[in-house]
Amino acid sequence: MQDGCTLALDGVTKSFSQGRPEEMMALADISLDVAAGEFLTVVGPSGCGKSTFLQIAAGLMEATGGAVALDGRPVDGPPGGLVYLFQQYTRSLLPWRTVIRNVEFAVEGRGRASRRERREFCMEFLEMVGLADFADRYPWQLSGGMQQRVAIARALAAEPRILLLDEPFSSVDALTRMELHDMILKLWEDRRFTALLVTHDVDEAVMLSDRIAVLSSRPSRIVETIETGLPRPRDRITTPELPRFLELRHYLLESLTKPKDHAA
């Protein structure tokens, strides 16, 4: 397993419909350095361009200005070693493939020796997310939380050096979300990839991250970055009771809800 890699965004801007009257500035001058093996979360109000930011970081969308570099190499398309976990898990799984075949989708390009080897390799990841018994079911036969776990297993099977998470926990119920948090933390601690999460959920941001970057509303810029300084391993019950957790939560909620007059 390779270690996580660094991601650097330097003065990234993004305009939609550029040069036309309806031109909209989504991102204004975003600079951010994600360290190797770090868990960094970008929080921002809804519609502030968080997904746009992440898609640019992943090389799925072209920036209007600025540069993105992964381990110092410029990103001009989805780079190897980077995996993107989409918010819409129902839409990112292939409905004609079984669960295990969906996980295999992540590694098929890498020419593993045989079908059986590939399957065995991928089964390990299904076991990690507790879905080994569901390998031969189809995604649409599973609940939402289970589908997202399939997507997580698939993302990890690609052995990412950096994992981008686009609000992947926002469309499951609260209990399932907690379980998924535990799982992603455990997997991240085991495998030490770099993790970059975007979310509007402040508790989630504080619970998971080493560092939190606060994004303003459109046109977005990074208002500040905060070290959480919370001990690891995190615990779903005791961590949120720490004074530092509450302090961060308070501060972030305040700063995210404050500039509303300016957003309107």
Binding site: A58, L60, G77, P78, G80, L82, V83, Y84, F86, Q88, R91, S92, L94, W96, F105, A106, E108, G109, R110, A158
Partner: peptide
């Protein structure tokens, strides 16, 4: 989202068509 998923897993051009778009 399906096509972008495939792209982030390193699929491109013909393989996106045969593995994702066509099915």
């Amino acid at each position: 989202v399906l096509v972008e998923t495939a792209r982030t897993f390193g699929y491109s051009g013909g393989r996106i068509v045969s593995r994702v778009v066509l099915p």
